[in-house]
Design a protein around this nucleic acid. Structure first.
Lengths: 186, 186
DNA sequence: GTCTATAATTCGATAGAC
DNA sequence: GTCTATCGAATTATAGAC
């Protein structure tokens, strides 16, 4: 544990660099420099950049899903779980480690990597849709609202980065939660 | 008109390539190949890639703002204008020409380019906030809802690209508009 | 398994003829 | 103003010693 393997150090360095810069702009050389291993070690463990990217992006997705489930999967009432997830502190100016990659051409052109992104959002959409169904909404409405909830987060990141204002994300969340929690009288 | 100048052809080609690939991954060489001009012409009109990017991204922003104002600035009632903007047909799988660039490190590291993105969203936020104020909402609530509305579009693009499903964007919009148009009883 | 050295290509940018 | 030719540095990846 105190001496991680070269493979683990490569994945860790790649996770950080891909989250900050994206996959395309991050060179294998940058990863091995940050990890402190030699050139040959990288290409021994990960023959191509694709292999390294699948491993590192997959690790980021696993960690993000685990963290999301800490709020979404708690034992609080449905809407409270969702609001807790939406209002969770986020590094708005950094952007979403996963969502950002949808703008990364190197990711979108790689079937394996796209599948990793797809799995992340399909999983989250399923969980959030289930939460809205718990509140008694019909399936199609629950699904639409789940899309809206996740879009608020992803779009809030975009607004925050564009305006260099972290509060753009929290403002979007406030606006959405305000609509969500107003009383409905159909 | 039938024979655009080399400068205009360069900007046009750059607008398309930057919208599809982002600025970072698009080489000046790719732009001049797509535009059909020679190497020297590009560097005559745009000494650096930065100069070309500011011109082309600026042109995309101007066009996007003009199109947005066609719905947001019409003479319909406030909420109708907003809903028309939200429901406008969009190429969801292509992503937002402007919003996508917030994930482009080459853009975010360039002050001039970041200012162009910032101006686009600040302008849109101002207009949409004004629309919500027309409906009688207090300033702070109007501003939060404006952030939410634009986040829905940007986040909807992200979801659509990640899941390769254009309906993810329309679902997010439906979910948000459904919340917006439900009766409020404070 | 890990290292150094280096190959082949592409990058952004420049030189200089016309 | 536009062109071809080319520079130096960076890219992804391979070779081969240890």
């Amino acid at each position: 544990m105190s001496t991680p393997t070269a493979r683990d150090r490569l994945i860790g360095a790649a996770q950080d660099l891909f989250a900050v810069q994206g996959v395309g702009p991050t060179s294998p050389r940058a990863v091995l420099t940050a990890s402190g291993v030699g050139q040959g070690s990288l290409y021994h463990h990960f023959p191509t950049k694709h292999d390294l990217a699948v491993a590192a992006v997959g690790a980021n997705v696993d960690q993000a899903l685990a963290q999301a489930m800490r709020t979404l999967g708690s034992d609080s009432p449905a809407i409270e779980r969702l609001v807790a997830y939406l209002e969770r502190p986020r590094d708005a100016l950094a952007g979403c480690k996963i969502g950002r990659l949808t703008a990364d051409q190197a990711v979108m052109d790689d079937d394996g990597l796209r599948d990793v992104l797809d799995a992340y959002f399909v999983r989250l959409l399923g969980v959030v849709t289930g939460i809205f169904r718990e509140t008694g909404l019909p399936d199609d409405v629950a699904r639409d609202r789940a899309h809206a909830a996740l879009a608020i987060i992803q779009g809030g990141y975009v607004l925050a980065r564009a305006t260099q204002d972290p509060d753009a994300l929290t403002a979007a969340v406030r606006g959405f939660v305000g609509l969500l929690t107003q009383k409905e009288h159909p």
